[in-house]
Design a protein around this nucleic acid. Structure first.
Length: 279
DNA sequence: ACAGGATCCTGGGGGC
DNA sequence: TGCCCCCAGGATCCTG
């Protein structure tokens, strides 16, 4: 679920309440999360949160020494809550914070998310290197981005979903960015022009920055770190709007499946082949 | 190298 | 009410 803007919102929400707070106790549920490589979270009691950062869709928590790494998967929620607020179903990890007793809670209905522990910052960085995690969208260098697109016959939608090319884009913002750029999601990377590549790069940045301003998109399960919903879902140009008119040209939007994911686009504004004159 | 499918999970919604 | 099927902001693994 959560893509870069949602994860960024969670991180921003959690920073103020969390930084400087010590872990008084840790509760871990029985159910397995997707990747928790022997994370002995109980060993974190007594540690203090020194900082919280985002990298792609990953949440990195600095515990002055060890780092906690959290991925929200499709339905993960990472929230700061008063202790008396009832814990919802599917809450898998709870950090109680001293001295107030508030809680940092990890909830994840489908359990595609993960909570793992790294002994040092270097170990965390090594993990990202091993993942070949791509740059943040705003760090994309135009020339290397273009080169990267030209190097593959994969379709743009698949390239955008691949975290190795650019980190943080998921199904919603891939579709939204392609619409802003006026590019067909099934256009092979090798076929883009330099101008199109640049248009797409700028569209990604624009779409994600706007989504961050709106605290991300709350459809189904997403909430920010404070439990507040996002507003970006009200401004989707194509995502989930199959059959509805394109906001730019009124043509009914279409839905296809690419890279195994539902893909929304305007058949008129986002043409595959070059537009041919009709007379 | 890539597409496509299955897999990990739970729940909501629609059709009957 | 229940059942069955499809769908879902992610990512990985396997096959062809």
């Amino acid at each position: 679920m959560p893509e870069l803007p949602e994860v960024e919102t969670v991180v921003r929400d959690l920073r103020a309440p969390l930084v400087g707070r010590a872990i008084a106790s840790v509760l871990v549920g029985d159910k397995k999360l997707r990747r928790s490589p022997g994370a002995n979270l109980e060993a974190l009691v007594g540690r203090t949160f020194h900082g919280i950062e985002r990298r792609g869709k990953w949440i990195c928590l600095d515990l002055a020494g060890p780092w906690l790494l959290v991925h929200l998967g499709m339905t993960g929620q990472f929230t700061f809550a008063a202790a008396q607020l009832p814990r919802e179903d599917h809450t898998h990890v709870v950090f109680t914070l001293g001295p107030g007793g508030e809680e940092l809670r990890f909830r994840d209905i489908r359990r595609f998310g993960s909570v793992s522990l790294y002994a040092t910052r270097a170990d965390l960085d090594a993990f990202f290197v091993k993942q070949l995690l791509g740059p943040e969208p705003w760090d994309l260098e135009p020339a290397s981005w273009f080169k990267r697109l030209k190097a593959t016959s994969r379709v743009l939608k698949a390239i955008l979903l691949d975290q190795r090319t650019v980190a943080g884009v998921g199904n919603i913002y891939a579709d939204e960015s392609l619409h802003v750029a006026g590019l067909h999601p099934a256009l092979p990377g090798k076929d883009v022009t330099r101008a199109q590549a640049e248009k797409l790069r700028l569209a990604i940045v624009e779409v994600l920055e706007h989504a961050i301003e709106l605290r991300g998109s709350s459809i189904r399960n997403y909430v920010g770190g404070s439990g507040l919903m996002g507003k970006m879902q009200n401004e989707f140009r194509v995502y989930g709007r199959t059959g509805e008119p394109c906001l730019r040209c009124t043509q009914p939007l279409e839905r296809i499946v690419l890279a195994g994911r539902s893909t929304h686009f305007c058949p008129r504004c986002q043409r595959l082949a070059k537009r041919r004159s009709t007379h």
